[in-house]
């Protein structure tokens, strides 16, 4: 009988709407509960966290956030992370644009092999690359700089950006290119003035995913930095091992790492579905 109530995917039959709402409600509850718990802890004093169990902060405090936002060794972690993430996003999308155009428009020697080889870099375990990266960037004097982390993250973000952009470019009719060339546009001018605005949402989606994967990565960014470019994620792990019990500050730092991601999602929310719709992530 459950099947019978589900046969009309569009109609707002009451029982069906309810099952949907219940399923989504439970799933979102499952997603949000651990996050709520982190926020909850970040608003408590350490005494309250360890002293007893409470579902919400009895003794609301913003001291944990104040600790982070006034201590340079904490908040510089966020600044460092943002610098290399933005650098990486810009580099990845910039080099991926012409390459994606080539893959979407032309057939050339070794194109398919090249495309798969690029994708294999997305499959390379960061753990494999941690040590060689450390040695490579140390030997060229880039160790502990933002650009080193940005370049290292290109390993998986460039192939991803090429993959996503190629999908979007394939959707643009070829006649547009040809008309532009007949009208006397040079390739660079056509690409910037006409082509890029057409795939603006694709560029947005590619940038979103580059931002995301660079922001969440820890292993490489921790290996390649010590002080000057130390990401927030690494700052957190250090504090856990050093003082061990400062749960409130740790939770507050965690909550603050969620904020940039949440902001980015909010701005690109309409593009996400579109980007996913192309089946490219």
């Amino acid at each position: 009988m459950a099947d019978a109530t589900m046969t009309e995917p569009r109609r707002a039959a009451l029982p069906r709407v309810n099952t949907r709402a219940v399923v989504m409600g439970l799933y979102l509850l499952f997603l949000l509960l651990p996050i709520y718990w982190l926020v909850n802890m970040s608003l408590k004093t350490n005494a309250e966290i360890l002293g007893g169990f409470s579902l919400w902060p009895r003794d609301l405090t913003l001291a944990n956030y104040a600790t982070i936002l006034t201590d340079a060794s904490w908040y510089m972690g966020y600044v460092n992370s943002l610098i290399y993430v933005v650098l990486n996003t810009v580099i990845s999308v910039t080099v991926a644009l012409p390459a994606a155009y080539a893959f979407s428009r032309y057939r050339f020697m070794g194109d398919k092999h090249l495309f798969f080889w690029l994708l294999t870099n997305r499959m390379a375990p960061p753990a494999v690359f941690a040590l060689p990266f450390f040695q490579l960037y140390s030997s060229v004097g880039l160790f502990d700089t933002h650009i080193a982390v940005a370049l290292a993250h290109c390993l998986f973000n460039v192939p991803l950006a090429v993959w996503i952009l190629e999908g979007f470019m394939r959707g643009v009719p070829k006649e547009i290119d040809e008309t532009a060339y007949i009208d006397g546009y040079s390739f660079p001018r056509f690409f910037v003035k006409i082509f890029m605005p057409l795939i603006a949402s694709g560029i947005g989606v590619a940038a979103f995913f580059c931002f995301m994967f660079s922001w969440v990565e820890l292993l490489l960014s921790r290996t390649l930095t010590s002080v000057d470019a130390k990401p927030i994620a690494a700052t957190m792990t250090r504090t856990v091992s050093a003082s061990g019990l400062d749960w409130g500050v740790l939770a507050a730092a965690g909550v603050l790492t969620i904020v940039p991601g949440a902001l980015v999602i909010y701005f690109v929310r309409n593009y996400i579905a579109k980007g996913f719709a192309l089946g490219r992530v």
């Binding site: 979102l28 949000l32 651990p34 969440v216 994620a233 965690g254 980015v264």
Partner: peptide
Amino acid sequence: ASVCLVLMSLPLLIPWNVVGTIWQIF
């Protein structure tokens, strides 16, 4: 639909070690 999209994307954008921390505490 927008609300679901945004809320569901949330775990994807949390740094992986923070994901670990969240569950370690939870």
